[in-house]
Amino acid sequence: MNNENSPARILVLDDEDRVRKIIGLQLEHEGYDVSLVDCGESAIEKLGGGDKFDLLISDIRMPGISGMEVLEYASEHCPLMPVVMLTGVVDVETAVNVMQSGAFDYLVKPVKRQDLLRATERALGYGRLVRYNRRLELENKRYQQNLESQVEDRTRKLSEALSQLRVVHMDTVRILSGAIEEKDPYIRGHANRVRHMAHHIAEALGYTPHQLDMFDFGALLHDVGKIAIDSRILNKPAPLNPDERKIVETHPLVGERIVSKVSYFSEIVPVIRWHHERWDGAGYPDGLKGEDIPQRARILAIVDSFDAMTSDRAYRLALSTERALDIIREESGYQFDPELVEVFFKEKTYELLFEGE
């Protein structure tokens, strides 16, 4: 990849000359180093050669090698490079497949300049953090290998590297959380309130400081997959239709894929994938049931639902706290783990709702 002080290198792939040139000019105007290619074969040749790119922006449907095939190649051979896909229509199956195949985001053509630049900034920011995290992990590994011969010096350096690594991880969380709230203003503060309540229950259950720290990260990032959901769906002022709901229900899987790129977060990947599972097995994405669902995901399901019910959404006003608590009680043993519901009420976790702002 490039020196952090040099312009980010972006490869733009689209078989339509006009679209390709417009996107290229808009990105060059922002100071990016842009390369344009008109077919999948040329893109793979660029990615497999000596050229290194910080971001790939690719059309999906093209003659010859498709954008999906280029995405698969990039995911395997350039795993640290984010990919943003372009689609000409809002095709539910295509959108779902794109995100599950490894794309960081997708845009619907014709692409507005503001949407293009925002998606580009988010993808490049995420790519920088992933690469920095990888470098620090390698340094950490080298320090551990040399500890026996230079214990004091290496211990100090290891401590510095780990401290630096934690800062990077927190930066990762802040960038991703901020990107989610930028797309859906109705959930502003939601992740932090959920973190606050989840932490309270976990502490009552005797979680260790390390487990609490990791659970905090998981709670803050539980909806990170919504980065890939079209803002028009997230902010729709009416109930979602079946196709839109299918897209929204991909966000735990997309979130799992995004977070799993940072090895430090491996412990919280199950929380992100399974926070929408139900105690009775009727949840998604895998239909897990009862104690097959990790405990942290079961805790998150309760506090996430409670905060969602007591917050305004684009399609409805907030429920009263009393009504939301009644629903939690009614769903005990159905949607929620009954033992954890008892803890939620015993510890009066719901009283912390507005302290997490």
Rank of each mutant, 00 (worst) to 15 (best):
E45V: 06
R128S: 06
D115Q: 14
E181C: 11
Q335M: 10
P185F: 10
G178H: 08
G48D: 11
H196M: 07
I10F: 01
R298L: 00
I23P: 05
V303D: 05
L205D: 08
L253W: 02
K236Q: 09
D213R: 15
K261N: 12
T172R: 04
D105R: 10
V194C: 05
M197K: 02
V92S: 13
R135D: 14
G67H: 04
E139K: 15
S101D: 14
K46I: 10
E339Q: 12
I233V: 09
G50N: 08
A228G: 15
V303T: 08
V37K: 01
V259E: 01
A198D: 00
C39V: 02
M170K: 14
G31A: 10
G255H: 00
L240I: 01
G218T: 06
R174F: 12
S75Q: 13
R195G: 01
D59W: 04
I65D: 06
L116W: 00
G225W: 11
I327H: 02
N5Y: 15
E4L: 11
T172Y: 07
S320K: 07
A282C: 15
T208Y: 09
G287D: 00
R135T: 13
R9C: 03
R323C: 05
V271C: 00
R142M: 15
E182K: 12
T172K: 01
K261Y: 07
K226Q: 14
Q26E: 09
G287E: 01
H200Y: 08
E355Q: 11
R156K: 14
N192C: 06
N97I: 00
L220P: 02
A95Y: 08
E148M: 12
D14W: 03
V173R: 06
D14N: 12
Y73K: 09
